[in-house]
């Protein structure tokens, strides 16, 4: 579980995160949603420790990130997996080598054990062995995301961060990636935080959703409570399109 308590962050005097508190549960998909420029990426990077917050607490199962020394942060990061928007695979290494990389750096495994673990992770994300020796530039965007997920889970992380995992993917592949993240989260009881503004993803896997609006937490709920909320910021963001407005109307009609 990750808890953030009253965190604020500013850049050059401009407040980007304003007194945000939230709890991210393990075994669930926790989503941070919001418009572009609302501060959700800054929030995620602050939780990971890539940005140092001005005030507040960030607790990883009770361990306060802000009170940790560099060595402790490095140790904590071995428990963290991250899926980047652009996959961030090492383009000079093959798919298999990419997944083996964290194992080579930090595990005492033999080469055979590392290969076995990497192949297990790649198979878990439904990649065929024929793709193992290809380079990232030789595979599709969806496959790259799968490889990135496999790399993120190779060291059995306790915390998984996904920054816009569906960006640049077609709707079918997006849903597959969402479901994969959900399955892995539940299977390995990981605390997963997904940063997204993809409506399909929100409706599909959002078990715990936090809406960030102009640097403040504007709403908290789940995909099940999203339709019944009368929060203005939420409605402006989620039901911006006519299609979703109609979906909401129908949903509320059915409920009543």
């Amino acid at each position: 579980m990750i808890e953030v308590q009253n965190i604020s962050k500013s850049f050059d005097g401009k407040l980007v995160l304003d007194d945000i508190s939230a709890t991210f549960h393990s075994g669930k998909i926790n989503q941070i949603i919001g418009q572009s420029g609302s501060g959700k990426t800054v929030l995620m990077k602050s939780i990971i420790g890539l940005f140092r917050v001005d005030s507040g607490k960030i607790l990883y199962d009770g361990r306060n990130l802000r009170e940790m020394r560099m060595k402790e942060i490095k140790e904590l990061r071995k428990e963290v997996g991250m899926l980047f928007q652009g996959s961030a695979l090492f383009d000079s290494q093959t798919v298999l080598a990419n997944v083996m990389f964290p194992l080579k750096m930090f595990s005492p495994m033999s080469v055979a054990e590392m290969t076995e673990r990497a192949e297990f992770c790649l198979t878990r994300v439904d990649l065929k062995p024929q793709a193992f020796n290809l380079f990232p530039s030789e595979i599709s965007g969806g496959m790259q995301k799968r490889v990135a997920i496999a790399r993120a889970i190779s060291l059995n992380p306790r915390y998984l961060f996904c920054d816009e995992p569906n960006s640049g993917l077609d709707p079918v592949t997006s849903i597959l990636i969402d479901r994969l993240i959900e399955e892995i989260t539940q299977e390995f009881d990981i605390t997963t935080i997904v940063n997204t503004h993809d409506m399909n993803s929100i409706m599909e896997i959002g078990a715990n959703i936090i809406l960030i609006n102009k640097g403040k937490k504007a709403w908290e709920g789940s995909k099940d409570t999203i339709f019944s909320s009368d929060n203005e910021a939420l409605n402006d963001f989620v039901f911006a399109s006519e299609l979703f407005k109609n979906v909401k109307k129908t949903q509320l009609k059915n409920n009543s």
């Binding site: 990971i48 890539l50 140790e75 990061r77 980047f84 652009g86 961030a88 090492f90 750096m105």
Partner: peptide, 14 residues
């Protein structure tokens, strides 16, 4: 710019 360095940092690699 392709976030590969961020990926290394998050893994705990210097």
């Amino acid at each position: 710019v392709t976030e590969q360095i961020d990926a290394l940092d998050i893994m705990g690699v210097n």
